[in-house]
Simulated scan of single mutants.
Amino acid sequence: MSGRCCCISIIICILIMILPVIFVTIFSPSNVEFHVTEFSLTQFNLTNNNNLYFNFKVNITARNRNKNTIVYYRRITAIAWYKDNDFAYVSLTPFEQGKKNTSFLQTAVFQGSSVFNLKPRQLAEYYIETRAGVYNDFSVDLDMTVRYKYGRLKSSRFNPPTVQCRCLSVPLISNGKPVASFNGTKCRNDYFFDVIP
């Protein structure tokens, strides 16, 4: 009798471990895709005393491919990087994204100054890029808190993996015209719904 109870207990334990995996496999939403569509850079000056003066705007789209999932973006922080150095943060307006929908995030406007220390090689690259009028190794990350609704099931708030829009080549706009065109870039993000609260 005790052997039978032991077997039932083992089966129940296995089911408890397997059921969430089955649920996630069957019902887990598709990943949300992000793209940088526009990057408008009008100032990017580094002074001799390591003060960086910057002014640029970034447009990013989010594509929700799911026909049964609504995504609620409760907090969005855009973080600007240049050559692996972060230098500015901007909070974007929270919003709700419907099913099968592509949405523009609020334009991220970065303007101001920051103390900015580049390594000798990075500084040499900065001066070369300044002369060319095109800056390489720009990045914009998105750090978020979201919720989602799948059918009638609503998740609690969670932080998905950081969305990384890396290796952006950005032309400087001078006299109203960019030196070169900016190519839209798909952002890298690990599976958006990895965290199933």
Rank of each mutant, 00 (worst) to 15 (best):
Asn31Phe: 10
Cys7Tyr: 15
Thr25Met: 13
Cys5Asn: 15
Pro29His: 01
Tyr126Pro: 00
Ser2Glu: 15
Leu123Glu: 07
Glu33Met: 11
Phe34Arg: 02
Gly3Arg: 10
Leu153Glu: 06
Arg65Met: 03
Ala62Gln: 07
Val36Ile: 04
Pro20Leu: 04
Ile79Met: 14
Ile14Val: 08
Ser30Ala: 14
Asn45Cys: 13
Asn55Phe: 02
Arg63Glu: 10
Glu33Asp: 12
Leu142Asp: 02
Thr77Ile: 12
Val24Glu: 11
Lys83Cys: 08
Phe87Ile: 02
Pro160Arg: 00
Thr102Cys: 03
Gln111Tyr: 14
Leu153Ser: 08
Thr77Val: 12
Phe110Val: 00
Asn159Asp: 09
Val134Tyr: 06
Gln122Glu: 11
Leu172Gln: 06
Ala108Ile: 04
Thr185Asn: 12
Tyr82Leu: 03
Ala108Val: 02
Ile10Gly: 07
Asp194Asn: 15
Leu19Cys: 09
Asn66Pro: 05
Pro20Met: 01
Val36Gly: 00
Leu118Val: 11
Phe116Met: 06
Phe158Asp: 01
Thr42Gly: 00
Ser139Phe: 10
Asn136Tyr: 14
Ile128Cys: 14
Val140Leu: 05
Leu15Thr: 08
Tyr150Ile: 05
Thr162Pro: 01
Ile11Tyr: 08
Ile60His: 02
Ala124Met: 07
Asn183Leu: 13
Phe192Tyr: 07
Ser139Gln: 11
Leu41Phe: 03
Phe34Gln: 06
Val140Pro: 00
Pro20Tyr: 09
